[in-house]
Design a protein around this nucleic acid. Structure first.
Lengths: 229, 229
DNA sequence: TTCATACTTCGATATTAATCTAAGCATAAA
DNA sequence: TTTATGCTTAGATTAATATCGAAGTATGAA
């Protein structure tokens, strides 16, 4: 059977610890420079450059030159999806990197899953949307209800451009920390962007942590109530 | 950032060509012995055993002792999902294994995607179900219509047990050969099983090829008509 | 122009891991 | 019990590759 897609090459690319850390860092959705990624991966800049060459060559990342900086980001959503799927499986099998740092609890609370909110708060939001029947779920199929449309619009999100995009509006995403579903898709992205725009939260340096301010968290919980959680 | 699921370990496991070939072979959904997998991977039985030890240790496969045979299969649907997702990404990036064998066209026509039908015929069936409004699709959400229920039942598939299972009934799957969506989920599995039961097609040796008989193919196209394709 | 910064390429090294031969174990058949 | 088959473990070898230091290139600042 020497036919078919070469998943070995893909696996091998992700299989190197340094590259895996880089890709994970890029799952923050931000474009990062080789030097930043080197720190993230715990290797020298030369080594990082070597790895980035491989990743770019395989089409997993794209780069943008800006002056003497070179910004690397994931090539597209497909790459992010595969990485998230792998994170989910790895977590399910209990294969977590053991060195738990101080950022661990923050990460579990609220983090970026490429372009939407994950972690405890992500799950909380998802549950709230379901409980208030803003979101209808049947099996894995998610749909925004009429009441949901009103709510989303009330939050200041314009649904028009989202509906026009080819991305699915609502998508379920399951990731590692809380083994629960949360909202991805165009709407998931719009929510997170809105939180940033409203000043409720901000991205933290090069990590995937989403830092909510006290005030922002209060607004979040008031807009997404859920007595169950 | 030394926290989070260890996707490097997972990638590294899939990253070895021999292991990747084994896993791909197991995507046929069948349980295979180390000797069969060794042939599939193009290595000696000892090497295969070495690899299987790693895969099992990581929880990617499960084995069942039966006499002096040992049957290996994928641990669960989660593993299959990740592999299929990786196949999709690898194919999109044009990373296909170049040595095209004689089985290639057969594979593209009809093959097993873990437990449902993929390839040209899989896409054809999906399009037919959509065109006749047996299946309603909105973005990535799939739903079986009332007419669809009647059709499925008429084909001799009992929907009762499928509805009870925790697996989603309809799921969209995108895989490599035809870059098009086809039907996965409990219903996708039920369809394929039914084709085998009706004698329309049979599995081919240890490969993922689904071989339709002339008669079976005729029945297939008559039951799933689609002038468009 | 000269210096500094960001990044890439080169060359050498060292570690890792896949592979095979050979031997050992377990089950089934004779 | 003996023999054959299927599989695993052990040991040695080889090949791949991640890594770093050093040198080279490009852009921006002084």
């Amino acid at each position: 059977m020497n036919v078919g897609p070469d998943i070995a090459a893909l696996g091998s690319l992700i299989g190197d610890p340094a590259r895996a850390r880089m890709l994970t860092a890029l799952l923050s959705g931000k474009a990062l420079t080789p030097s930043e990624l080197a720190v993230e991966a715990g290797v020298t800049v030369q080594t990082a450059s070597f790895h980035l060459g491989k990743l770019a060559g395989a089409g997993l990342t794209q780069q943008q030159k800006q002056g003497r900086h070179r910004y690397y980001s994931l090539a597209d959503d497909d790459v992010a999806d595969v990485l998230v799927a792998m994170e989910g499986l790895a977590a399910k099998r209990g294969h977590t990197r053991t060195r738990t740092g101080p950022k661990d609890p923050d990460l579990r609370k609220a983090r970026v899953c490429y372009n939407h909110l994950a972690g405890t708060l992500g799950v909380h939001m998802f549950d709230s949307l379901l409980a208030r029947q803003y979101l209808a779920a049947e099996a894995e199929n998610l749909e925004l209800t009429d009441a949901g449309r009103a709510f989303v619009t009330g939050l200041g999100i314009d649904l028009e451009p989202l509906a026009k995009s080819r991305r699915p509006l609502c998508k379920a995403c399951l990731d590692w920390s809380a083994r629960r579903t949360h909202l991805a898709g165009a709407l998931g992205t719009a929510f997170l962007d809105r939180f940033f725009a409203l000043g409720w939260a901000e991205r933290q340096s090069a990590s995937r942590v989403v830092a909510f301010s006290d005030n922002g968290a209060a607004r979040f919980f008031s807009d997404f109530p859920n007595e169950a959680s």
